[in-house]
Write a protein that binds this DNA or RNA. Structure first.
Lengths: 131, 131
DNA sequence: CAGTATCCTACACGATACTG
DNA sequence: CAGTATCGTGTAGGATACTG
């Protein structure tokens, strides 16, 4: 009892908890944080600067979600000034690697997508004006 | 000229187009649509029912984003009643497979995450009350 | 069926100020 | 430094009605 659930998870079911897990992993900032953490351990501000464009609030919130879900480990050192280090748990590393798989593909293929957009945007626009 | 871009894409740069590509792929409904399309070709309503919980508006918008980006092919048949079929392009399949990699991991590991949450939520809550 | 157009609201998110 | 608290706003996204 209390063992890890074996009842089938189903992303297509709106109420399935797997949706919230996926939401945390794929959130705007969640993705970037995971990628950065894959590289090494970081302090809070350091992480913020590395990600680029994230506010303190969202960084804190994102890290808490990932910590609660067991993807990120937070270690606070009782010093002055305070120092807190964030790293991936083993499970976090597993998930982050999958995220990285997609991220690397995107970085490598933005060019193809941008080319596709040039023609794709017109097709969609044409349908709208044909009303 | 007009060749696919080779200039380095950087997800950490807020202005890099790769961010919008990733946003489309990882959006709430984008993920689910890609997973479903990986299975086979679907009609509009069919797709909506399969995904579960998506509104017409969001389904149409999501499909358009993916179509514009060159991930999804839309084929309309001049019949009455109208029939429109959506499928993945070869590039869409490449991306969708990466998305699937993460999705399958999540479905298989929700149990571990749920267990982690039981203890993780308390740790975070404890910090807040210790103010 | 396959959408589009309109309206409306909850909340995601940023900016700012403050605490330990 | 490492956050939390508060406030204000833009917009993602749902509900509904309508078109071809």
């Amino acid at each position: 009892m209390a063992a890890t659930q074996k009842l089938k998870a189903d992303l297509y079911a709106p109420l399935c908890p797997s949706r919230t897990v996926l939401d945390h992993l794929m959130s705007r900032w969640g993705v970037l944080v995971l990628l950065v953490l894959l590289e090494r351990t970081w302090r809070f501000r350091e992480l913020g600067r590395k990600v680029g464009g994230v506010s303190e609030k969202m960084l804190a919130q994102t890290l808490q979600h990932l910590e609660v879900d067991g993807f990120v480990r937070r270690e606070a050192f009782p010093e002055i000034p305070p120092r807190v280090e964030y790293s991936l748990t083993p499970m976090g590393r597993e998930a982050a690697q999958r995220v990285q798989g997609l991220a690397l593909w995107v970085e490598a293929n933005v060019g193809r997508v941008l080319s596709a957009r040039a023609v794709g945007a017109k097709k969609v626009a044409a349908r709208r004006s044909a009303s």
